[in-house]
Structure formats: structure tokens, C-alpha cells
């Protein structure tokens, strides 16, 4: 029974997404700007051995951009929850004979799908950049096969599920858009910079390195780089990256369920 309502609400979320063409455009414009300006202008000249095996810095940070795109997409998953509360739709759902769990679960699933699709689009753009004269892009040096592709998909899905779960849960306890924006702004930049997404952690001070090493973004980019670049020496073995992400998403999903169920109870 729960499947039916979860699916119906999941489809609603996706319809909102693909019908809001401007939103998709804005979501993609940001990584394109990052890749096109930040990545091209940053004069980091490091050998592949310092870049997790990436042939150049652009290739290195493109992978980081995939994870960051997934992170940002998930952070905004809570937006629709806040809107639905504002317009009374959430109350309508609470009055319906549905499993309460379907409300957060459908949104987490939809956020995960949106995040993975957005990240894959960024991947395509980064690959394309490498073929445009005068621009740098992502150059894959690994012997790339179906397993590598599935590995990248799995990593993105785990990362997105973890972040979507926690942000949907947070947004269920928040009443206004402004508060949600504040929470997002508080978390997005630290999460992005205290990770191996944009810069190799070897250049960071010890305390920042310690934080970056347990940041799920680091696990995600570390795993994906090993799947994309030949001779990549990861921070962790790829198995550890994936298991770490799995554990992380299990913890955040459980935490999300507890927070969401408390928030949805009648007062």
C-alpha cells in the first residue's frame, strides 16, 4: 500500500522538476560556470600523482563538481517541503489515509533521481569541454568499462540519498523558506571546501585534513577518481569509499526517518 502513494508523490515531485525548465537551467548553469571559469582560471599545475591520478587539475575538479552538484541538488530538496507546508498541501497529505513515511521517502527518492541526473549532465559537459579548443575539461585515462560506469552511478546514488534524507528531514522541522536558506548556506560551503572535491587534501592544514577525510564528499570523489583515472592512488581503497558512503547514508536515512516522523506527528 505504501508503495502506491510513495510512487504517486514521487511522480508529482519529478513533474514539478521537469516542468520548471528555468530551475533545471539554473541548476546546471552553476557547475558550468564553475567548470568554465573557476576551473580554467585556476593556475594549479600539479603532477597526476598529487591529483589522485587525474591528468590535470581540470579533470581533478570536474569530478569534484559531480559530487558538489549532487550535494546542492539534495540541499534544495527541502524547498518543496517548505512550500507544501506554506500552501497547506502538507496538511492535506496528513489528513489522507496514507503512510506518513511516504511523504519524506517520495521526496528523498525524487531528490536522488534529480541529483544523479544533474550530476551526469555535468559529467557530459565536463567531457565535452575537453574537446573544445581553448578549454580544458575532463580527460578519462582509466580503461573505462561498464563496471566503472555502474560504480560512479552507485557512488552518486549513495551520496545523494544520504544528503537528501537529512535535508528533507530538516526541512520538515522548518517553517519558513528563510530558515531553510540559512541552514543551506551554513552547510554548503564548509561541506564543499572541507573535502577533496576541489583541492587535494595533502595541501591542507592537519585539522582541515582530519575533517576532509571523514567528509562523505571526499569518499565520493575519491571513489569516482579511482574509477576514472589510470593509476589513481586513492585516499582510501575504493571498497572503503563505497562502504563508507553506504554506512553514512544508512545513518543519515535512519536519522532522517526519526526526525521526519516526529515532525509529522499531530501536535
Amino acid at each position: 500500500m505504501m508503495l502506491r502513494e510513495t510512487y504517486a508523490l514521487f511522480i508529482r515531485e519529478l513533474k514539478h522538476w521537469y516542468r520548471a525548465k528555468v530551475q533545471i537551467f539554473m541548476m546546471l548553469i552553476q557547475p558550468i560556470v564553475w567548470l568554465g571559469l573557476f576551473g580554467q582560471a585556476f593556475p594549479i599545475k600539479l603532477p597526476p600523482v598529487a591529483l589522485n591520478g587525474a591528468p590535470d587539475y581540470m579533470s581533478y575538479m570536474s569530478v569534484g563538481m559531480l559530487a558538489v552538484t549532487a550535494l546542492f541538488t539534495c540541499m534544495f530538496a527541502g524547498m518543496s517541503v517548505v512550500w507544501d507546508r506554506r500552501f497547506g498541501f502538507l496538511n492535506k497529505l496528513r489528513a489522507a489515509p496514507i503512510s506518513r513515511g511516504s511523504i519524506p521517502v517520495s521526496r528523498v527518492m525524487a531528490a536522488m533521481v534529480r541529483a544523479v541526473i544533474s550530476a551526469l549532465l555535468v559529467l557530459l559537459i565536463a567531457l565535452l569541454f575537453a574537446h573544445i579548443p581553448g578549454l580544458q575539461g575532463l580527460t578519462v585515462t582509466a580503461d573505462f568499462g561498464i563496471l566503472n560506469a555502474l560504480g560512479i552511478l552507485l557512488i552518486l546514488m549513495l551520496l545523494a540519498t544520504a544528503f537528501a534524507a537529512i535535508f528533507v528531514a530538516i526541512s520538515l522541522t522548518i517553517k519558513t523558506q528563510e530558515t531553510l536558506f540559512a541552514v543551506i548556506n551554513l552547510l554548503n560551503l564548509p561541506l564543499m571546501f572541507a573535502s577533496a572535491a576541489l583541492f587535494p587534501i595533502t595541501g591542507m592544514p592537519d585539522w582541515l585534513q582530519a575533517v576532509a577525510k571523514v567528509n562523505p564528499l571526499t569518499l565520493a570523489v575519491d571513489g569516482m577518481r579511482q574509477l576514472l583515472f589510470a593509476g589513481s592512488e586513492g585516499i582510501y581503497p575504493i571498497g572503503v569509499d563505497i562502504l563508507g558512503l553506504l554506512a553514512f547514508s544508512l545513518v543519515l536515512v535512519s536519522l532522517g526517518i526519526v526526525v521526519a516522523m516526529r515532525a509529522l506527528k499531530e501536535k
Binding site: 500500500m1 502506491r4 502513494e5 504517486a8 508523490l9 508529482r12 513533474k15 514539478h16 516542468r19 520548471a20 500552501f87 497547506g88 498541501f89 496538511n91 492535506k92 497529505l93 489528513a95 489522507a96 489515509p97 496514507i98
Partner: peptide, 27 residues
């Protein structure tokens, strides 16, 4: 059935889609 004070129909769906969603939620 509840028809709340606020307008809670979904702006970004068609009328029929709104109805279908409601039907699914009520089994």
C-alpha cells in the same frame, strides 16, 4: 473528505492530475 480553508491544489499539475493524485492517495 476534507476541503481545507486554504487552496491546496497543486499549481504545477493539471486539474486532472491533481484529481488522480488525490485518488491514489485515497486508494
Amino acid at each position: 473528505g476534507l476541503v481545507p480553508q486554504e487552496l491546496t491544489v497543486d499549481d504545477d499539475l493539471t486539474g486532472r492530475e491533481n484529481m488522480m493524485l488525490q485518488a491514489t492517495l485515497y486508494g
